[in-house]
């Protein structure tokens, strides 16, 4: 009886350490595989026309490059990528932003962004799963 209980204890010990060893190497990979896989790119810029009056009262029109977002994305909001530390490791998260836009439009349906998104931000352009504000993501590209 004692030999059987010792054998059971030994088997349980080996299984416990085998599981811990497996999780040591593969837990992070399993975690990442369950996250939304996203692709992100830099914020787009478009040329918007600006009208100004010079000192002689002449109306001048020129084009300037500004941060832009397509009208389609305005309604559903934009997911911006940011990095934060969670449980001792740096990870990527998605923040949902509803940017403030001006009335200016380009011909291909882009709006000028006044606030909410800045030039250095990375916007998620595609995802394998539905995102929500603050969710952790895995960036593929």
């Amino acid at each position: 009886m004692k030999n059987i209980s010792k054998k059971i204890t030994l088997i349980f010990t080996v299984m416990f350490f085998a599981v811990m060893l497996f999780l040591t190497f593969f837990a992070e990979k399993i975690h990442i595989s369950l996250l939304p896989q996203v692709q992100a790119s830099g914020v787009e810029t478009k040329l918007f026309s600006v009208t100004a009056t010079d000192e002689n009262g002449n109306i001048m029109q020129y084009f300037t490059e500004k941060t832009a977002i397509s009208e389609e994305k305005l309604e559903e909001g934009v997911y911006v990528l940011y990095t934060a530390e969670k449980n001792g490791t740096k990870r990527s998260f998605a923040r949902q932003i509803f940017p403030e836009v001006s009335e200016a439009r380009t011909e291909d349906g882009y709006c000028e962004v006044i606030s909410g998104i800045s030039f250095g931000d990375r916007i998620i352009i595609s995802t394998t799963k539905e995102l929500f504000d603050g969710c952790e993501v895995n960036v593929i590209k």
Binding site: M20, T24, A27, E28, K86, N87, G88, T89
Partner: peptide
């Protein structure tokens, strides 16, 4: 703990 806290494993070993 096991799938979201990876600093745990080095400390265990």
């Amino acid at each position: 703990l096991l799938f979201d806290c990876f600093v745990f494993y080095p400390m265990f070993w």
